Simulated scan of single mutants.
Amino acid sequence: MSVADPHTEPRPTSASGKPLTSRGEATRARILEAAEHVFADLGYHEASIVKITERAGIGLGTFYLYFDGKQQVFEELVVDLNRRVRRSMSDAMAGATDRISAERAGFEGFFRFTAAHPALYRVVREAEFVSPATMRLHYTRIVEGYEAGLRAAQQAGDVDTALDPEVTAWALMGAGELIGMRYLLWDRGADGSAPAEMPASVIDDMARFIRNALAPRTTPEGQS
């Protein structure tokens, strides 16, 4: 898995568009963290700004210094989760020596993030109805970097050149999302707790699947 570098994206601003101080960035991050829990627990329509500010430990006036209302904080949460999950994948891939290793490391980073932040699933699914453009932004930001990485790997001879990079990027991203849903979101222990991490056997099987899907094909001798 390859993603656009999230480290180079613009820093967040206040509701008025002014740059934030370090303290302002910390407050904004606390609001988004609270929103992550409230939207995940209650859903968009049942969530409220009051519940978000109560969880964040701030007043309503402070909230409006950073966001115009519930829809904006929801959309900014999708963008923030997207940035953080891409950072988790990008950091995990650093130092990978070949494409298959990079793919495995990227998915491991994705699964680590989603195990710690299962709200990603509910928030993105709700975005389909609350803010379709933001949902599309979430997926396209991942796919754009993913596709570029596959094209580079094809040029380097690491990936089958017969594959369409865009189709392949969407297919693998979709597979990773559903695998995460199956083994991280739905599985529960005897006490009802969610898994803390993706089982190693699942990652091994997924890496094998990816290797078989991406590896360059060799033409048998005597065939054209």
Rank of each mutant, 00 (worst) to 15 (best):
D158V: 02
F63C: 02
A194M: 11
R30D: 15
D205V: 06
A29Q: 12
A26L: 09
N82V: 09
L184M: 01
L184T: 05
D98R: 06
A171M: 10
T62F: 00
T53Q: 01
I203N: 10
G57L: 07
T62G: 06
Y64G: 08
S101R: 14
R208T: 09
L20F: 03
E75F: 01
D187M: 13
L65E: 13
A35M: 04
A96N: 03
F113T: 05
A94T: 14
G145T: 11
A148V: 15
D41L: 08
E76W: 01
E25P: 04
R86L: 02
T8W: 00
V130L: 06
E147H: 05
S2L: 09
D80F: 07
V124F: 01
R87I: 03
A29R: 14
I49F: 04
A152S: 11
R217K: 14
V50L: 06
A26K: 10
Y44A: 12
E144P: 04
D5C: 07
G95V: 04
T27S: 14
D160S: 14
R208E: 05
G24V: 13
A47V: 01
A102T: 03
L65K: 13
L120F: 03
R84W: 06
K18N: 12
N212T: 15
V73R: 08
A105I: 03
T140S: 12
M89C: 10
T27K: 14
F129H: 13
A40R: 11
M1D: 07
V159P: 00
D5F: 05
Y64D: 05
R30N: 15
P6C: 11
R141E: 05
E103Y: 00
Y44W: 14
A4R: 12
G222W: 03
L77R: 09
Y183L: 04
R141T: 08
L178F: 07
A56R: 07
A26C: 00
K51R: 15
H45P: 00
L172E: 00
